[in-house]
Computed example of a mutant assay.
Amino acid sequence: MHGPASPGWLLVALCAATGAYCLLRMRSTVEEQRRAAGGEALMGFGMAAMAVPAAVFSPPPWAWPLYATVFGAAALRALWSARTDAHHLHHLVGASAMVYMALAMAASPGHHAGHGSSSGLPPVTGMLLLYFTGYVLLSGVRLIPAAAGGGGAVGWGDRPELARACRLSMGIAMVAMLITL
């Protein structure tokens, strides 16, 4: 993504750490945790790769269509999974947003997508910003009671408050990436 290098590296670190924790969650004994964690790990690492500052590394032209293909497949999987679990609708929106950002970056290599046009914020970017801003606010509210509650000895992969914190951080990262688009 385009933008200053220091915030870009912080975004890379946040997304990579979130992806790494999601990989730990894949070792959970709870099947639902394992299923959700795989898609979230893909999102975390994909967002980290896309957030590397352009001044440091400019991906080759074939990388953006590759991102679009990978996240398009993730969106199709989320759509299929949404038949039985509504949480996967969020994964569908997230993967679709990644496809959108990859296509926008492919269409404007070396430039800020959407900048230079007199039309202002593209409608799709605006809708995604609204969605993810709402998601971040709702996730933050849901996290507050979880932090106050106590619990028994639970493995790292089964801590619901950490899973919520990871989802919150990925939502914040998505907002940051969409703003720079």
Results as ranks from 00 to 15, higher is better:
Ala5Ser: 13
Ala5Gly: 05
Ser6Cys: 02
Ser6Ile: 14
Pro7Cys: 14
Trp9Asp: 02
Trp9Thr: 01
Leu11Met: 09
Val12Arg: 00
Leu14Val: 14
Ala16Gly: 09
Ala16Asp: 10
Ala17Lys: 03
Ala17Tyr: 00
Gly19Asn: 04
Cys22Thr: 03
Arg25Cys: 15
Met26Pro: 01
Ser28His: 01
Ser28Val: 02
Thr29Leu: 09
Glu31Met: 03
Gln33Arg: 04
Gln33Glu: 15
Arg35Gln: 13
Ala36Cys: 12
Gly38Ser: 11
Gly39Met: 15
Leu42Pro: 05
Met43Lys: 05
Gly44Pro: 09
Gly44Leu: 10
Met47Thr: 10
Met47Leu: 15
Ala48Asp: 09
Val52Met: 06
Phe57Glu: 00
Phe57Pro: 00
Ser58Lys: 05
Val70Lys: 04
Ala73Pro: 07
Ala73Phe: 12
Ala73Ser: 11
Leu76Ile: 14
Arg77Phe: 12
Arg77Ala: 15
Trp80Ser: 12
Ala82Glu: 04
Arg83Ser: 08
Ala86Phe: 14
His87Lys: 09
His91Trp: 15
His91Pro: 11
Leu92Tyr: 08
Leu92Lys: 05
Val93Met: 05
Ala95Asp: 12
Ala95Lys: 08
Val99Leu: 13
Val99Asp: 13
Tyr100Trp: 15
Met101Tyr: 04
Met105Thr: 06
His111Ser: 08
Ala113His: 04
Gly114Asp: 06
Gly114Val: 07
Ser117Asn: 09
Ser117Trp: 07
Leu121Trp: 03
Pro123Thr: 07
Pro123Gly: 06
Val124Asp: 00
Thr125Asn: 10
Thr125Lys: 09
Gly126His: 01
Leu128Ser: 00
Tyr131Pro: 00
Gly134Asn: 01
Val136Ile: 10
Leu137Met: 10
Leu137Ile: 07
Ser139Trp: 01
Gly140Phe: 05
Val141Asp: 01
Arg142Pro: 01
Leu143Trp: 02
Ile144Leu: 10
Ala148Leu: 14
Gly149Thr: 11
Gly152Cys: 06
Ala153Val: 04
Gly155Trp: 02
Ala163Lys: 02
Ser169Gln: 07
Met174Arg: 01
Val175Glu: 01
Ile179Arg: 01
Ile179Ala: 12
Leu181Trp: 00
Leu181Thr: 06
